[in-house]
Design a protein around this nucleic acid. Structure first.
Lengths: 243, 243, 243, 243
DNA sequence: GATGAATGAGGGTTCATTCAT
DNA sequence: AATGAATGAACCCTCATTCAT
């Protein structure tokens, strides 16, 4: 189907030192993982066939078995790898939002979303709303959504995925939110006794409503809807923690 | 699996009446649906085999095809039926919690959780927490959790499930929450300008944290954890809407 | 598919004498046979499903079994009935060629094809050619071709069809050909010692070449090709039996 | 059926050479085709099951799918291969008739059937009759007959078989017949202006009458009947083309 | 006599996995 | 270490046929 059968990773050094087969090996391994992620995310565990993954990766089926031992282990490796990759992206939220994101674009004007800019005084509500937009943008990104659905679907069968399931609302976002609340407390706008706990609640509220509104990422979340969700969340927290 | 091949539902035929063929038909249809729900919830769409469903239902495979036309249509009928059943149960939350529930038991002693008792003055916080326990108990019930995971997993492939996905946090719980907030506003304890909107936020917050803590219902939610979640949520809303 | 479900042959007398269920019976039997012929000819024995025949006939499947006992017996009844019907049509060749005929139209100008007109003297060759066109038109008719293919396909399995296979080149055409040769012998144009034997050869020659050229009736036989075949056959027989 | 499960074609490996994997592959492919021909010819397309073919070939079912992709493609490959094989046999008619042939044995003593011996002068009629016996023997051979029936049966569904259907009366026999007529013209016994066209007619006549008499090869053609057919055909052509 | 529902067997096809090279 | 070929088990679905009304 894809056509571009790669019979061996030729991109590297073939003429020079014959050594370093490890590079070749790792390259193949990486190609397999990449293909596996793509197909598992698109098709789900059962519908994904090892044949398709092998073809997409440009390797033989047996190579997959040599590297990973079986479909299950390949699945876990692929999903956990992707989970880590997504978590890393959470840690440093994209300055330029991914083009495929069906969620609301951040467009956080001058606020201190998660970027860590200096706080503009007097608009804690706007700052919280902008933060919410960031959270939604990051969590509803297409790949992240597909990964979440996949993990939720298989969490019952593969217990090792459950931590991944928990990481769905990653600590890094909570940390950023807590920092925001702390700054606004410092300016005297808010009075948040437990910023981390409050941030955890804020993220949970945003995530649930965002997932609900986009049916867990299977449909794009309208810009307007995202704005409303974030404004309402900001309003709630400002009310609760106003100084 | 179950093995007990029932060659004809003999439970009818009672009273010596003519036999009500319609009853027989509906009974078979119901048996198939019941078996389908059980197996789809346990195994997921792809792993569930029509053979297994037929055996569990005590009918022939072809009978399933006569009634539903194919695996896909059977799946949708089963899931949508179960969704409605669960929604109905939401509407009138169980007074006695189901014994299989891995989630937190309500234990809401004298509070006005969702039961609609008269409000005990002065303990809005406790009332909200008790309400939260009800919400968690109902939403983390085993069957409801499995159904949710199934719907989330297949929402991408079967768009007709998406409304079911949205119904995952049903309006009836929101209504009950709004009513609670309204009553507490009436007593002067709270001042909630938009009780329905606030209830929606409260449910979302509870649900997300509950799902997160129980990894979407694959693990029982510890009593203590549930209590903490509910207390924190109650605290937030009391802070935000204190009179 | 066909939609026009006939739940009972209503075309007859319902109000009058309640008697004569035989007519109803025979009507249903006929409807089944008609549907069976249509579907067997179109699909072949194995691909034809009893379900499809029942639907086409507007009766229940079990009715078919009541009448015919099984698929095989229904098949034989249908094919043999159709064989007789086709043979009858051979006996009195159509004056107006059937509109669906993919074969060459007769267009036998003034000749004595099989119509039995008086012989125009001096053009035995043309008369034979015209006769050939009649033969091809009749034998390559669409239904006749489908029936032939069906009989040939199943002759190995159902010996009772073999006579039908033999009847594929029916005696009535041979008789007409023999009569033609006899008339031309009477006029002194030809000298045919054994007209029946010669006619049998002529029919065989025409049939084989016609079937070959139309790939056993699966493709229409071009007008030109039919003309050539018939002219060549006429030439051969005129050469052989010229006076 | 055959039961003798061969887990790997061990017939190779001869000579202690390296093993020729290509040979192994081709051997398996050939075994599948052989089994497919046998079963398709015996059972027809629909009744032949891929399971049965796999068992007969001593391979796994999936191996068939690996090689041919599906039942239809296997069918076409098998039939077209057999058609070519039969055509090859036509080209060099068997000196010793196959033992399984239910058709008339040639018994053509010293004549110049198709063997190409020098023409014995004065017996053009006998030569033509002997040629006819050869044609019948070859065309009514058991496998050739079964193949013809199969092709006729499926020509409507698989257009790619139609050429095979046309090749049913192969050019090589026509060529041999034309050569015979030409030689007899050279000796002055006959005067055939268009030997090829005449041979085509002769073959058609023989084939049709032979198929008719043997019900398309489902019954053996009696020796006597074959002799009569051939004699009559020879008589016709000698009459038509006598010098 | 006719119906709709039910049956058990079997069909083609695809899968995850393992040899043999 | 990597490949192409091969395996056996299973899957969804359809069929001809028979109860029960």
């Amino acid at each position: 189907m894809s056509g571009q059968r790669v019979h061996g990773p030729r991109e590297g050094r073939r003429g020079g030192a014959v050594g370093r087969p490890a590079g070749r090996l790792a390259a193949k391994r990486e190609a397999i993982l990449q293909a596996a992620v793509a197909i598992f995310l698109r098709e789900g565990y059962d519908r994904a066939s090892v044949d398709a993954i092998a073809e997409e990766a440009g390797v033989s089926k047996q190579t997959i078995y040599n590297h990973f031992g079986g479909k299950e282990r390949l699945f876990l490796a692929a999903v956990e790898g992707e989970r880590d990759r997504v978590a890393t992206r959470f840690a440093s939220p994209p300055q330029s939002p991914p083009p495929t994101a069906p969620a609301a674009a951040p467009t956080a004007g001058g606020g201190d979303g998660a970027g860590g800019a200096r706080p503009a005084p007097g608009d804690a509500r706007a700052a919280l709303a902008a933060y919410g937009r960031q959270v939604l943008a990051v969590l509803l990104e297409e790949r992240a959504s597909a990964l979440r659905r996949l993990i939720i679907a298989e969490a019952g069968r593969y217990p090792s995925l459950r931590p991944a399931c928990a990481h769905g609302e990653p600590e890094s976002l909570v940390t950023a939110g807590a920092e925001l609340l702390r700054r606004r407390t410092a300016t005297g706008e808010l009075a948040v006794p437990d910023p981390t706990g409050a941030a955890r609640q804020l993220v949970a509220l945003l995530v649930q409503r965002g997932l609900h509104a986009s049916t867990y990422g299977t449909q794009p979340l309208a810009e307007e809807a995202a704005a409303t969700l974030c404004d309402e969340a900001a309003e709630l927290f400002v009310r609760a923690y106003r100084a």
